[in-house]
């Protein structure tokens, strides 16, 4: 059994701000982390490995600048057997289409992969587009938003978390599964493993190593472009009601019913 977990190094997004003068992203002093949903994907892979009767290899894969290696070291510390960093100037400027193509090419190069796991989305871009994109480029089934996952022989059964319901789905391996946070609690790496992971060799592949078509990677392979970024209109706290419960409730009900009146009934 060979499992690839696609991970992304993201900034701790709650600290990312826009400079209101220049409209540039201020990333200074913002720490990087493994995308939280990807930690769930790593945990899901490691649980499969733990319960697997036979040889099972878990490989963490990421595309990013050289410093994204830190995310892979975290994955190795958690228990991944191997880690691969896709890094090449030619990958820069990739949107979700180019990124998913690039990851899929790497997965082809790894070869004989049974299962690809991803977090449902990354907390910086919040697109949820890369996992399904990888599945399409590999020509395999996808199961998105999994909250439960089980394997039996070549069969995958997963429970998907939808808006107001769950859907239990099955498919055959190989397949791509994206997971939600509620699927598990990611394990914490022991200090010993963190130290060991620091010394581990991390494989680096370039565009050439994965036989990537130059027209389909990086900026050239990305149909979408960010035209501008700007600060959202900030919310400001409004009126505050204090005092007798009866008065407060009366005023609240006025406000709520006024809003409710304006709603469409559909």
């Amino acid at each position: 059994m060979k499992i690839v977990v696609c991970i992304k190094q993201v900034p701790a997004t709650t600290n990312v701000r826009i400079d209101p003068e220049t409209n540039a992203l201020i990333r200074e002093g913002v720490e990087s982390q493994v995308n939280p949903f990807d930690e769930n994907a790593l945990e899901a892979a490691l649980q499969v490995k733990d319960g697997y009767d036979g040889e099972c290899q878990v490989i963490a894969l990421t595309m990013g600048p050289p410093q994204a290696e830190a995310a892979l070291r975290d994955a190795v510390a958690m228990g991944c057997d191997d880690a691969i960093l896709l890094t090449d100037g030619a990958f820069r400027g990739a949107d979700t289409l180019a990124t998913s193509y690039t990851l899929a090419q790497a997965i082809r190069r790894i070869g004989d992969v049974d299962l690809v796991l991803c977090g449902k989305q990354a907390i910086d871009g919040d697109t949820a587009q890369v996992g399904p994109g990888v599945a399409e480029h590999l020509g395999v089934p996808q199961i998105t938003f999994a909250i439960e996952l089980s394997l039996e022989g070549r069969k995958i059964t997963a429970k998907r978390m939808l808006e107001d319901s769950f859907e239990v789905v099955e498919c055959r391996m190989p397949a791509v599964v994206t997971v939600v946070k509620q699927i598990n609690d990611p394990r914490r790496a022991s200090m010993k493993n963190v130290l060991k992971a620091r010394k581990r060799e991390i494989t680096r592949w370039t565009a050439e190593d994965i036989d990537a078509d130059p027209d389909r990677i990086g900026f050239q392979g990305s149909p979408t472009v960010v035209w501008k970024v700007f600060a959202p209109e900030g919310r400001k706290g409004g009126r505050k009601l204090e005092g007798e419960v009866g008065d407060v409730v009366h005023a609240l009900a006025d406000e709520i019913l006024e809003i409710r009146k304006g709603l469409s009934t559909a």
Binding site: L97, T127, Q129, P132, G133, E136, Q142, T144, E163, T224
Partner: peptide, 23 residues
């Protein structure tokens, strides 16, 4: 941009090489 729409949109865009903007 529901779970269904996101599942479909990204598969479809990758299939046909279209640009897709999320949410």
């Amino acid at each position: 941009a529901t779970p269904q729409g996101r599942d479909l949109g990204s598969r479809l865009a990758a299939r046909i090489g279209a640009g897709l903007t999320a949410d």
